[in-house]
């Protein structure tokens, strides 16, 4: 990173939302207030879920392996726990320094990982020298690509072609494809996503059409679909994810 001193934004965003939640909850009673409370809780939960996912993965890489399902359960449990503590004001991040908010969430994640590994007798704390490196999910694939300069060039061409082909899909189809292929989301979760809202069968059919369309498009460019090389996510994110609709914009908070 080129700007290691940049302060993270999520702690202050969390504080803003919690402050509004407490203010709204105090004045609750009118139906719109109740709806607003629900929206705010949803946004707070999303921040907690995202940060706990990041920190839980970080600590799990240091302390010992967690399966994907253990990690998902742990993050879900801790997110709900913190949300409940905010609801009851047992934890009130509003008056905390942003650094302390961040440290607290990290500690919750670390303790969760330790408890889980202890319960499964898999706690294997690594020496301090190894604490600092986050291993990417697909590190072996990444290293393989890095080893060969010709592969890198080929990967770059592949990503450029794929990008063109993906952009030929409709925006919704692009998003579906992106959720499945880049985020590895199951059909059920994609179907429930607020930007998609389809039944599971339709998701599968639409995905099949996307794959067929991209496959044909890649063939016309003399390319065959294969494992996605590094750089694919960064190249396609803007075209597919369209996440400029920030939390604030989505919920009319901005």
């Amino acid at each position: 990173m080129q700007r290691p001193s940049a302060a993270p934004r999520w702690p202050s965003r969390l504080q803003e939302l919690v402050q509004e939640l407490h203010g709204t909850a105090e004045a609750a009673g009118a139906p719109t207030r109740g709806g607003r409370v629900s929206t705010l809780r949803g946004d707070i939960w999303l921040i907690l879920h995202s940060t706990l996912t990041a920190y839980t993965r970080f600590h799990a890489r240091r302390l010992g392996p967690l399966s994907d399902s253990d990690l998902a359960d742990l993050v879900s449990e801790k997110s709900l726990d913190l949300l409940a503590r905010i609801d009851t004001q047992q934890w009130d991040p509003i008056d905390e320094a942003e650094g302390r908010v961040r440290a607290f969430v990290s500690t919750v994640a670390r303790n969760g990982v330790v408890d889980n590994l202890r319960a499964n007798s898999r706690l294997t704390e690594l020496p301090d020298t190894e604490l600092t490196t986050v291993q990417p999910l697909h590190s072996s694939k990444d290293r393989e690509h890095e080893r060969h300069a010709s592969d890198a060039l080929e990967a770059s061409e592949f990503v450029a072609c794929l990008s063109t082909c993906v952009e030929s899909l409709t925006p919704r189809a692009r998003k579906l494809w992106f959720f499945r292929v880049l985020y590895e989301m199951p059909s059920l979760l994609i179907a429930r996503h607020p930007d998609i809202q389809m039944n599971v069968g339709s998701v599968d059919v639409a995905l099949q059409r996307c794959r067929q369309s991209i496959n044909e498009c890649m063939q016309t460019k003399g390319m065959r679909l294969r494992a996605l090389p590094p750089g694919t996510f960064a190249a396609l994110w803007e075209a597919c994810a369209q996440q400029r609709n920030t939390l604030a914009e989505e919920e009319g908070l901005g």
Binding site: P136, Y183, F233
Partner: peptide, 17 residues
Amino acid sequence: PEFEAILQEQCAARESG
């Protein structure tokens, strides 16, 4: 690629959430 993988994981977590 290491940072890209982290970014990808976080975006996936957000959309799943």
